[in-house]
Simulated scan of single mutants.
Amino acid sequence: MSLASTPFTIGGLTLKNRIVMPPMQQYQGTAEAFATDYHVHHYARRARGGVGLVIIESTAVAPEGRLMADDIGLFSDAHMAPVAAIAAAVKAEGVPIIMQLSHGGRKSRPHPGSRLIAPSAIPHDDDYGMPEAMSRDDITRVVMAFATAARRALAAGFDGLELHAAHGYLLHQFLSPLSNTRTDAYGGDLEGRSRIIADVIRAVREAVGRDVPVTIRVSASDYQPGGLTADRVAAALERLVPLGLDAVHVSSGGLSPEPPPNAGPGYQVGFARTIRERIKVPVIAVGNIRTKAQVEDILGEGHADLVAIGRPLLVHPDLGRVL
């Protein structure tokens, strides 16, 4: 039996194998951020294709935090029924499903009339424009939005949650010194810059209890001088994991418009290994992983506990059966 095909447990949730479908934007939501029948069929088809876990695309916790004008959200009770249909379809295939919760911060496409907000008034680029530095009331509101969305996700039938702290979105913006120049309790040193993530974890745990799997996706490198590195992210996670995280999903980049300098096969696996050596919960590796040999090497060499296969699954939905 291959390592990829062995069962694994995350926070009490048993997976039939170690292949994860990671969150990937589908750009098929309505203008009001509702999921559609497209999402139901898309995710159910990949679940049928043999993956052990499905994590659905970034789902906005607030109307000003949508990443795109056609992504989906869970910032009202009205959004629950469409995502509940996704959860039911995936679970009917015998596969657990997790919802990724996000706020785009300065990389958002807010609803008309909403504000563009960020830790500091530093733009991502000219296209997104200049954000407003968040007030303490803004921070409290966003933290509670994560908790409320988490509660809705569980009521809609999801088995767990992933907090999006990667790819240059709001929680990542707070963590990186390049995008967070605050001088209050939510800035400064690593403890201050990770404080909002700690607040979100605590609020989500209060909302859903301790038995629900809660994971986090991080960017382990900003690929810029003075930015986040795998060691710095690992140090933050050493503080954050004990607050109630059950796994860490290790990606990279996104804080700036420039792509990673080298996105070759398995280019993020070394980051996963660095973080796995420092924390006591399972780690998911992702990033240009396409072959069975890669997957077996990652698992066999102890680089990660699970492997996420992204874009290849979009082209070959049955890939989970052959890895």
Rank of each mutant, 00 (worst) to 15 (best):
D297Q: 13
A69L: 12
A85S: 05
L101T: 07
E296V: 03
R46K: 10
S219Y: 05
I122S: 07
L53P: 10
V283Y: 09
D159G: 05
A185V: 01
T6P: 00
D189L: 09
V142N: 10
D222H: 11
S179G: 14
A263C: 05
G226L: 04
A44P: 09
G188A: 02
I201M: 11
I216N: 10
D189C: 02
R273M: 00
L175N: 01
M99W: 13
V295K: 12
I196Y: 00
P257A: 01
L245P: 02
P112R: 06
V233C: 04
Q173W: 11
A85E: 04
A35F: 04
R141F: 02
G254W: 10
L314A: 03
D77P: 06
E132F: 05
G157N: 05
H303K: 07
V40I: 14
T274A: 13
S194R: 09
V200L: 09
V40N: 06
R66Y: 09
D126G: 13
E57Q: 02
S108Y: 07
N262S: 15
L323M: 15
A263H: 07
L53A: 12
D137C: 02
R115V: 05
P63W: 08
V83P: 00
A198I: 00
I122G: 07
R195E: 13
T140Q: 12
V248H: 03
Q268N: 13
L163S: 10
A84R: 12
V95Y: 01
A88Q: 14
G49T: 04
R276A: 10
F34I: 01
G94Q: 06
A198M: 04
R321V: 00
V269Y: 11
P63Q: 15
A44V: 07
A85P: 00
I275A: 09
P260I: 08
R278S: 06
D184M: 01
H42Y: 15
A81K: 15
E93N: 00
A133M: 12
A62S: 14
A145P: 06
P131D: 04
A236D: 11
I10V: 14
M80L: 02
Y223G: 12
Q173N: 07
D137T: 14
P261S: 08
A304P: 14
L243E: 13
R205Q: 03
R152G: 02
D70A: 08
H79G: 08
H249D: 15
A165R: 08
G73H: 04
S2V: 04
G52S: 12
E162L: 04
